[in-house]
């Protein structure tokens, strides 16, 4: 009785490896592409920061140029109020009174209500 033997030339090799096609590019290309995008992004970001710095400088200097004019106007108004207040006080009390035992200027806390006001 003939025995069950392998076929002549042996069995065919068994396919145990998966045979899937590799999709897309090689990983190194993806790495390069991402690095490129990041570099571009940081470059644009840096440009934006530089531009913002310059815009900030422009805004600061526009204000610096205006500060003296605004401050002068405000100071004149303060002086006007203070002199009016003193004049009113002199009129009411007859003499200038010193509240503090010092010649130092102290910003007045209270003011006499003026006679002529808006509305």
């Amino acid at each position: 009785m003939p025995q069950d033997m392998p076929p002549v030339g042996g069995y065919e090799p068994i396919q145990y490896k998966r045979n899937l096609p590799a999709r897309g590019f090689r990983p190194a290309y993806y790495l390069l592409a991402v690095a490129g995008i990041m570099t571009y992004g940081f470059y644009k970001y840096g440009k934006g920061v530089r531009e913002l710095n310059e815009l900030g400088r422009e805004k600061m200097w526009s204000r610096i140029h205006l500060i003296p004019a605004l401050q002068a106007e405000e100071d004149r108004d303060q002086v006007r109020r203070m002199l009016a207040d003193k004049a009113r006080e002199r009129e009411l009390l007859g003499a200038e009174t010193k509240v503090y035992h010092s010649d130092r200027f102290v910003r007045p806390t209270f003011a006499v209500v003026p006679e002529n006001t808006t509305d």
Binding site: E73, V79, R80, L83, A84, D85, P114, N116, T117
Partner: peptide, 20 residues
Amino acid sequence: QQVLIDTTPLPDSIPKVKEI
């Protein structure tokens, strides 16, 4: 507060200047 705005002008001893 809005009725407490003093409208007294500066005394004549101080030169007048027109505000901006």
